[in-house]
Design a protein around this nucleic acid. Structure first.
Lengths: 329, 329
DNA sequence: CTGAAAGCGCTTACAG
DNA sequence: CTGAAAGCGCTTACAG
């Protein structure tokens, strides 16, 4: 290596001066640093990783960033990881949707861990990762059958809290704007709501529409739901993004008042929900805590550890789109 | 290598079966694939990169993702890069703000290119990258003095178009909600607006406030600007995020009408700007085209190429927050 | 603390 | 088309 030659030391010496915690005299170290500066030397992480078996790279699979929950997850993860000197390698699901291939590519990069906030993972791939000792953690989703870690908000708890709130607000006729069923979270939220509603008396109607997880979808779904024979007085939107669309449709297209004519509640607590134009009551997705636990799961070295699934309590964020505070909160 | 042994072939043979375009008989290839499947073999990109000098990784430095322009840039870049089998390695600016160190770390990962949408780059580092033949492209910013590529929307053009629009809408008294001056884009937009206004007659007033590039900042700045002695009838917000805050302040706090009392124009065209609650007229940041050009600049192999700076025309997106369409568009 | 040597998992001329 | 060999830039026992 040129630096070693210029500094007049062994190759091992320059390796040691760039490895914190190595035993190297400050004399040698100084010589090496000088030579390195002169030659614009930058250590090669690739070669190092080949030996240490650590790349300081974590792969992240993320769906569309249009939904700000995911931006929040990404930012937080990136920040926390960076504190440990590791960076995120980003993977975006594409049309051909061949997630097995994507996972294989992650492995080829020799990432230290894999975090999945979108798509799913086949059991074959889960086994592969396990075999290679790279931890896999699912974010906000879970596959009970798979032996991978998962951390997520407690969708059931969230659904129940939302249902209680709208019930306490005097709701009789309910609408639900749902998202794609392929997301377990959506399913769980919906089921929790439905279950809690059905255990309550005095419910007159529940109508459901698909909001496609987008603003426009929420807008359309609200139009649909609100034009049903028995117009709902309470609306669950399984995602804030859809809730924003629904609110806009209700106010500007239908000329109805929120919450007087309809109470609206969302899920996630994206920044926009707090905007003065919306003031959406919502069930927060605990991004901070999710990432916190993700970091812990990633740190678990041995794949001996049984897969853990961590559940975080739902937190209700009360704003002005709902009618009243539940008495017992 | 185990796969080679199990398949009964040379190490070179398995290398070739996993290198598209290599000359390998289908007989050998089949044997290797079978062995690979049995052993859960995944090629090691690290080792490969050590030799080929390509990692298929591009480093991206991105500021806070709260501003959706950056999410859009990120998504688009990730998608396009992935088509070429390369992934983004994400870097987030942190408090200690030591960008030279961050850049050094990017280099240690041996990334194929560096894209910077935040922070700046020192000339020392620019030289280092040039010396190592890794292309650097600045996104939405530029440092005329540095020999790195840059692609961005034409801020001057955008400023002029915005100014024309508000002028044609009958504006006499103007407000500008600006962002941190450290962003060249902000500076350029402001200067273009100011220049164009000053070249026009009948201007009575221009008042400026700092919106801190956030919703809350825009909200506060609007309160400030709109309470000046001569209340503006036209408001430039150098960023959509700030414009949303400003609109909310104007409508819900000040109880003024948009555009009747004040016309508001933003910059960027983030998704929220199109929402029914805002319908913000804005100058679009051409994300698609920016990433398109970024890809081209990255592909430029040799650092022989002189640094290019690509400028993309501004596009006005007319919605309901402004008073009229300029006659000459 | 220091250096010589082996080796991480691959690719790539070089012969055949 | 195929294999043996050298080598990419490092780290890590192993001696000293």
């Amino acid at each position: 290596m040129d630096v070693a030659r210029l500094a007049g030391v062994s190759i091992a010496a320059v390796s040691r001066t760039f490895t914190p915690g190595s035993s190297i005299s400050s004399k040698l170290s100084k010589k090496v640093h000088k030579a390195a500066l002169q030659l614009n030397y930058v250590p090669n992480n690739l070669a190092r990783s080949l030996i240490t078996r650590r790349t300081n790279i974590v792969a992240l699979m993320l769906p569309n960033l249009d939904n700000q929950v995911y931006s929040a997850l990404l930012s937080e993860a990136s920040l926390r990881l960076q504190e440990n000197n590791t960076q995120l390698l980003l993977f975006t699901p594409n049309d051909d949707n061949d997630f097995d291939r994507t996972l294989q590519r992650m492995l080829e990069y020799q990432v230290d861990a894999i975090v999945i906030a979108a798509a799913s993972i086949s059991s074959r791939m889960a086994a592969l990762c396990l075999g290679r000792d790279v931890p896999v953690v699912m974010l906000g989703r879970h596959l009970p059958s798979l032996s991978v870690h998962s951390v997520r908000g407690d969708a059931e708890d969230g659904g129940v809290k939302a249902a209680q709130l709208l019930l306490n607000g005097g709701g009789k006729r309910f609408g639900i704007i749902s998202g794609s069923q392929s997301f377990t979270t959506m399913l769980e939220r919906k089921q929790a709501i439905l279950k809690h509603l059905s255990s309550s008396s005095g419910i007159e109607d529940v109508v459901i529409a698909d909001g496609k997880l987008t603003y426009e979808g929420g807008y359309q779904a609200a139009l649909e739901v609100m034009s049903s024979a028995e117009r709902p007085d309470s609306l669950f939107c399984l995602t804030d993004i859809m809730a924003l669309g629904a609110m806009d449709a209700i106010r500007h297209k239908l000329n109805l008042r929120i919450p007087e004519d309809v109470a609206v509640i969302g899920f996630d607590d994206i920044p926009e929900a707090a905007h003065e134009s919306y003031k959406l009551t919502t069930v927060r997705t605990p991004v901070r805590q999710m990432i916190h636990h993700m970091m812990e799961l990633i740190a678990l070295e041995s794949s001996e550890e049984p897969p853990q699934t961590i559940m975080i309590d739902a937190e209700l964020i009360l704003r002005s789109s709902t009618r009243s505070v539940p008495s017992h909160l």
